[in-house]
Nucleic acid binder design. Structure first.
Lengths: 352, 352
DNA sequence: GCAATTAATGCAACCGGTTGTATTATTCGC
DNA sequence: GCGAATAATACAACCGGTTGCATTAATTGC
């Protein structure tokens, strides 16, 4: 049986409270006593019971992490990396992560997240994939539990951390335009997710700045999964054959896009360039390596936990919004459009 | 403030115990009373405090999940999928998953897992990546906490669930041999992991059955990461140029292998065939799609939780060892060796 | 109609800690 | 040497549930 505080007290002929204070480093207990207590604790392997501590202090040292159910969620390496980084950081601050496995049902899919938040089991929550009008926010606000979103939230009272979606997408798409691309398809994520919306906005901005009209026929919406990207790309290819580049709003969809293109007999990047978003490790192992916008995934995980910890400690009551830099990462999946290469080669052969 | 049991008791002029029993469905409380209690609970949104419940019942309804630190761990989609499935199943049985973020240090890397196991915070533990002589087993056995490993463990007293590593690998490698391959390299995982060892054994068995001698020069050890696979393949290519196929002990390493081969100017599968293991979703999105041995990842997650739940309920005291079927999944990354194709084409052109 | 059952509820201890306050022992000033 | 201040420790309530046993009320048997 695990030794308890009372056991220790009995052995040392002390009271529970003194033993407890000795371990907590309370200045009121004599140095000699503390030493004895600590030594004994070491000896018999005493560890305070976190459940009892939780009941007494109303703190659990656990952070709830709400991961949305599929289609995206836990099959996207982005989340795994994020999870790892968040877990690491949480541990550094003495917290553990409790996963809220999401539910399958469509609309009620947030119930388990809300239950966890309301369970007194966690000191704070990390939430992911905010929607434009996210029903969870109102519920959470009523609970006075600190929480932070991964991804931008409109409500100014809510803390969040996000990669620079709009600017990142705009910058990368501008590079495509710079290469000579004019017909650039866009595979978006679910339209009600803020990240998806922001990346699409970046795409639109880049087009607008280059004076290229936005053509809805070459914009399709996926669901942030391989399959989603694959199907969306197929749908676009059915009607449009003159695109020379594709911007997929995340890497995983870009993989599906690449497959759809190849199946349509289009070579990457010779016929069509492909650009992703996220910078997951697999991107550079594709053939050709996928050009993407690298998010600082580890830093996102770290930062979000740090902000949450601050709020849990009550140090900072005002909401924090943090946008982390992203970085365009060129790679073999993008190249100038074929008509430029052809012109160039014509030109060269003409000169020879 | 959250309503407590006492609040409910006060409102209804009942005692805590009756209210508690009413909610628990104890047959001793009158039906009318139970209805009143349940109605009120519904009305004021009463939810029992799981921390207090945990203290009283010594059950937390939480399963600890120990994920080893890098290099593999949470950057491998295999684990993410596993995690999702385990989480889903856990929820179905009323449990949540508490992640044990692993530590960076090499040898002491298991400390946090053991602390979690010993923390009274979890009712059971899921452990991953067993090593051949896994130090955790002895520690866990002393704690009388149910635990199950993902992956085979030698100790017969320990429960585990695993894919059919040896047979799966043997079968797949045999298919390579069947295609005509003789010089098949093997990129193993860390040699002290049972999964790695078992898959390598499958490779050896297949060779032996075909009468092909095992050549240690074309066996290299990776660490189950892309980079590890890449480097191991490079090392092999440095001395050996006559291999016609590679078996990587997991898909993620296979991606690294493919990259190394391409960088060496070798085409897949024309010059070299590549075979992976795991069946992660990305495999089929590679170019060419990666042939692999598909593990039933979701079922692994489901089964492991079910076994653990059974053991936590005390229904089954004897250890359970479960081997789940794997399935060879052919794909574009494997083909007959080039000398066969060349012979074939020579033959054909000769015939014409 | 009264003892014996049975049904319904209440009391109080307990889970293992934390923490406000009371108590005892010691030291200090003068 | 005595009262006051201070240091060290103990007591007891509390966190919010669960659970064994006692108690009371209602029902049954004869």
């Amino acid at each position: 049986m695990r030794p308890t505080l009372q056991d220790m007290a009995n052995i040392l002929n002390l009271s529970k409270s003194t033993v407890s204070r000795a371990l907590a480093g309370d200045s009121r207990v004599a140095e000699a006593t503390r030493t004895k207590v600590v030594t004994l604790a070491e000896q018999i392997g005493y560890r305070p019971n976190p459940i009892a501590q939780g009941l007494a202090t109303r703190r659990t040292n656990i952070i709830g992490l709400a991961v949305p159910y599929a289609p995206r969620s836990l099959s996207d390496p982005f989340y795994l990396e994020f999870l790892g980084a968040a877990g690491d950081t949480a541990m550094k601050y003495g917290y553990s992560l409790l996963l809220s496995a999401a539910e399958r049902e469509g609309s009620g899919g947030y119930r388990s997240h809300m239950e966890l938040a309301n369970s007194a089991r966690v000191d704070g929550m990390i939430l992911t994939e905010p929607r434009v009008l996210d029903e969870r926010i109102e519920i959470l606000k009523k609970m006075d539990l600190p929480f932070v979103f991964l991804g931008m939230v409109e409500d100014p009272d809510v803390s969040w951390v996000s990669g620079e979606n709009t600017r990142g997408a705009a910058f990368a798409v501008a590079r495509l335009i710079e290469l000579g691309h004019r017909r650039i398809a866009c595979i978006t994520g679910p339209s009600d997710q803020t990240a998806s919306k922001a990346r699409f906005k970046g795409y639109s901005v880049a087009l607008a700045e280059a004076g290229i009209p936005l053509d809805r026929n070459i914009v399709a919406s996926g669901d942030f999964t391989q399959t989603g990207g694959y199907q969306a790309m197929k749908a676009v290819l059915e009607h449009e054959s003159d695109i020379s580049a594709v911007f997929a709003c995340n890497d995983v969809m870009a993989f599906g896009v690449m497959r759809a293109l190849r199946e349509a007999g289009l070579a990457i990047p010779n016929d069509v360039s492909v650009l992703g978003f996220d910078g997951i490790p697999f991107a550079e192992y594709m053939d050709p390596p996928l050009a993407t916008v690298r998010q600082p995934i580890l830093e996102l995980g770290r930062t979000i936990v740090e902000i949450l910890v601050e709020q849990m400690n009550g140090k900072n009551k005002c909401p924090i919004h943090k946008v982390l830099n992203v970085e365009f990462q060129p790679a073999g999946s993008i190249a100038p459009p074929s008509w430029i290469s052809r012109e160039a080669s014509t030109c060269v052969s003409g000169a020879v």
